[in-house]
Design a binder for these strands. Structure first.
Lengths: 251, 251
DNA sequence: CTACTATTCAAACGAACGTTTGAACGAAGC
DNA sequence: GCTTCGTTCAAACGTTCGTTTGAATAGTAG
């Protein structure tokens, strides 16, 4: 019955199934019994190999985020080396950050759209262990990219850049998680998207990922370089907020 | 001990507490026992007044979304009446849609930031009853605004507008839900945001909501009007995709 | 063959969950 | 006063959850 399940085969099979079920049903909604049954392993296997359900979720993410964060840092290193000390272009930075992420969706061996959707969805889960896990996992990468954006946009207040980075992450997360409500909401009574998605279901998810990237990147860039809001009614932070008069057209 | 709890007082108190606890712990994470204990009502009160936990969540949203959707439709009606048949400006449409939403955050009697955060968070919950509930609740409003955007941006392919509406909803949802991971992620080692939020905690949430709106609207508008992606590698949908050459600067 | 380690398995554990029940309570109508 | 109806209450129901346990089963080295 059991073909050749080496020691690591069970672990990997659990991770694959857990990735898919956490994505579909959420962390609370995917029970250990459902996961282990679908993975055709014993109920106790998860606790034996990973320790707990929470540790399993972290393991699911660690398997993918290692590659992602490494690749993101390499991409930034390469860009900065190529620029030779000069500030990067915002479009380059976004391409390195979001393009690398979206490439996961095109490659099933990196997790594919399943992992992308899981990632986008899990970022909003309120459980504490998830929050601290992602904070630790993302800290270095975010810090590097934030500094790169600061250098790329010296005339934009740093707080504004952080806000917009926040907005961009949100737009991306929803976009990739969005088989949900929003797909239903925005897709109602419009055949175009449905038709596109139906046509894409024939292809791999890879095509959908490429299309998503092509659509998302210009949006993010447009948002990042949008005119600054008027400085009125922002009396608290008396930080660097001068000279946004003409930056509105040039940022 | 019990002051003067009229019949409706219990219902309202349950709704208030449920709103806050669903926001903090999520739908699964907030147990009936925790909710009823915090509301100082009997455990059976929820099932008596609302029928079930799922119905309670829907009631929490219905209490707020009624006002929101009505206001959104009125705002659009007013704009279109004022324009007298001419297409609206995209900024007007976004202001009517997102500005109305963000005004909730400024008014505690409309739910305040608590409800905004709950809304942003719940939109990603994978439970089926939540998806269908929001789909029904939002259908009319989204349809109206989508058509308004189509008329406002006649040179932009409709599918592209829907994508960008999707992105905007995502950016907004994350922005308002974002006490979470993203606040931690983007806030690490940057004193500005933390300082701003600390300073804002002195004020109401209203100040935070206003600041958020001021920051979010330009970002969304910039994303909506960003240059279109190149039509290359999009062979499937042979729809209206001409004339994006100069629309990149003017949309 | 034996001993040992790593893994799998069926079974059970205690806790927490959403929901139901039937009695008790209190104000209003006749 | 008595009944009626909407509401509250303590208690329990049955289910499902994540986790633990101890025996059974390979696979490997001595």
């Amino acid at each position: 019955m059991s073909d050749q399940k080496s020691n690591h085969d069970t672990r990997e099979r659990i991770l694959d199934v857990a990735e898919r079920m956490f994505m579909t049903y959420g962390f609370d909604g995917a029970s250990m019994r459902a996961i282990t049954t679908a993975a055709e392993v014993n109920l106790a296997a998860v606790n034996y190999h990973f320790g707990s359900k929470e540790a399993l979720l972290c393991a699911v993410f660690r398997r993918r985020l290692g590659w992602l964060n490494r690749e993101r840092l390499h991409a930034l290193d390469a860009l900065e080396a190529q620029a030779g000390g000069a500030p990067l272009k915002p479009s380059q930075i976004l391409e390195a950050f979001f393009g690398t992420l979206l490439r996961i969706g095109e490659d099933e061996s990196l997790g594919g759209m399943t992992f992308l959707r899981l990632l986008g969805r899990t970022l909003t889960e309120p459980a504490d262990f998830i929050r601290t896990f992602f904070a630790n996992e993302y800290a270095e990468v975010i810090e590097r990219y934030k500094l790169a954006l600061f250098r790329a946009l010296p005339d934009v207040p740093k707080a504004e850049i952080v806000w917009r980075l926040h907005f961009m992450l949100g737009a991306m997360s929803y976009a990739i998680a969005g088989t949900d409500v929003l797909q239903v909401v925005t897709g109602c009574e419009l055949g175009d998207l449905a038709g596109e998605r139906a046509a894409a279901s024939g292809d791999d998810d890879a095509a959908l990922a490429r299309r998503l990237a092509q659509r998302l990147m210009p949006f993010l860039l447009g948002g990042l370089r949008a005119p600054l809001p008027l400085a009125a009614a922002l009396p608290t932070s008396a930080q660097e907020s001068p000279a946004e008069g003409d930056s509105s057209t040039e940022i």
